[in-house]
């Protein structure tokens, strides 16, 4: 992306909230669109894995993954309430205005994955950044070999995008496996960490010609990486998206720089081979 000389890279554009859906406790999906239709059109050219900067004026600005695929009709963010900006966003109601700029970051190089098996491993809200990629891959189903989705949550009530998960479970050509750390009444599925799904009877994760997408909390990330490496995955076959404190999103403010990489412009998508060489905690 090359901004023209007159473009202001810090200028967000106003957007309006259409509706808000509670996904799980503390996590809501905010459906929104730019006030300016041309802006909306331009924004929709994002790639899976990219992110946007969300402005809550008076509180601040924060980076947020883009969970929709570029071809989905609606644009939305799925946000966990964790700091002051996200708390302010959670206070908003349909019809309220905020501001957005982006999309930023490298995104997943989907074309490079054509002809491969895709294995998605998402722990908890780690499914948010991977959702875009999964929906995009299913829209171009014939470009890929096997597609497997592994999603784990603490409890059945904390599984993300439940209706989408059911849709994927019923989609031919998609293997969708779910697990929870603690079962609850009515849960007949697997109990255990997400990595325990790989060894389940009837599950076979191909290693040859496969790309594994891993997103989730640090502890889950470490264990899944260990499992995948033990299964024979090469570090460059594993991709993830990193999150960092960011102010600008365009490689200027310096906060997200790890090793030689600015997460905002060189990432947020990195292979595990790159992550392992950056030299910082994940």
């Amino acid at each position: 992306m090359n901004a023209s000389a007159t473009e202001n890279i810090y200028l967000p554009k106003t957007a309006v909230l259409d509706r808000i859906v509670t996904e799980i406790p503390d996590v809501k999906t905010f459906y929104w669109r730019f006030d300016d239709a041309a802006e909306q059109q331009a924004f929709k050219r994002f790639r899976p894995g990219q992110f946007a900067q969300v402005s809550l004026f008076g509180v601040g600005e924060f980076p947020a993954s883009l969970p929709p695929s570029p071809t989905e009709k609606e644009t939305f963010f799925t946000i966990r309430q964790v700091g002051s900006c996200t708390a302010a966003l959670h206070q908003l109601k349909a019809g309220d205005r905020f501001a957005v700029r982006g999309p930023y970051g490298n995104g997943f190089p989907m074309e490079e994955y054509y002809g491969k098996n895709l294995v998605f491993v998402a722990g908890g809200i780690g499914l948010i950044p991977l959702r875009s990629c999964i929906v995009d891959a299913l829209e171009h189903r014939d470009k890929y070999q096997r597609i497997q989705i592994f999603h784990g949550a603490k409890t059945p009530g904390e599984l993300m995008y439940v209706s989408k998960l059911h849709e994927w479970e019923l989609t031919p050509g998609v293997e969708c496996h779910l697990t929870v750390d603690r079962a609850a009444a009515g849960w007949s599925g697997n109990v255990g960490v997400v990595g325990s799904l790989f060894a389940k009877p009837g599950v076979h994760v191909p290693v040859e010609n496969t790309i594994a997408f891993v997103c989730g909390p640090p502890i889950m990330f470490r264990f899944v990486i260990k499992d995948l490496l033990a299964m024979g995955f090469q570090p460059r076959q594993i991709v993830s998206t990193l999150e960092r404190y960011m102010k600008c999103g365009v490689g200027k403010c310096g906060h997200c720089c790890i090793g030689v990489a600015y997460v905002c412009v060189d990432g947020p998508v990195f292979t595990y081979e790159q992550i392992a060489n950056l030299g910082e905690d994940i």
């Binding site: 992306m1 090359n2 901004a3 000389a5 007159t6 473009e7 202001n8 890279i9 810090y10 365009v250 490689g251 200027k252 412009v265």
Partner: peptide
Amino acid sequence: RDFRDIYYE
């Protein structure tokens, strides 16, 4: 770099 900073410029 890729993004020019208009305030600086």
